[in-house]
Amino acid sequence: MAYQHIDLAFLEQFTKGDKGRMAKYIRMFLQAAPPGIDAMRVHYKARDWEQLKSAAHSLKPQVGYMGIGAIKESVQRIEEYAREQKRLEEVPQLIERVHDTCEAAFGELRQAAQDLEAQA
C-alpha cells in the first residue's frame, strides 16, 4: 500500500518483514508521539528550554523509524533552537508543522498497524 506521509521501509528491514513486530513498534509510536508533541507545546509555553529540547530529542529517532521524513528537519530544528536558545520565536510554527504532519501520519500508521496485524 502506498502512503503519503510515512515510509515503513526501515521497520520492514529492521524486523525482516515480521508484520507482528512492525505493528508492535507502530502501536508504541502511536502511544508515545501524541503526548510527546503536546509536551513540546507545554514546555515552550513554560519557557522550559531544557525539557523542550528533551521532548524533541526523544521524538527525533522515532519519526525516522516511522519514515515521517517531512518533519525530521523540523524536529531537529526545535531541538537545536531549544538547546542553543536561539530563534525561539520560530519554534511554535515548527511545533505546529510537526503536529499537523504527524496527525496525517497517525491515520496512515493506524491503518498500517491494522493491516499488518491482520496479515501477521
Binding site: F14, R21, K24, Y25, M28, A32, S58, Q62, Y65
Partner: peptide
C-alpha cells in the same frame, strides 16, 4: 532509555 520504544527495539535487536 526513557523512551519505551527505544528500550523495546534495542532489546529485541
Amino acid at each position: 532509555d526513557d523512551d519505551p520504544m527505544q528500550v523495546q527495539m534495542m532489546s529485541d535487536h
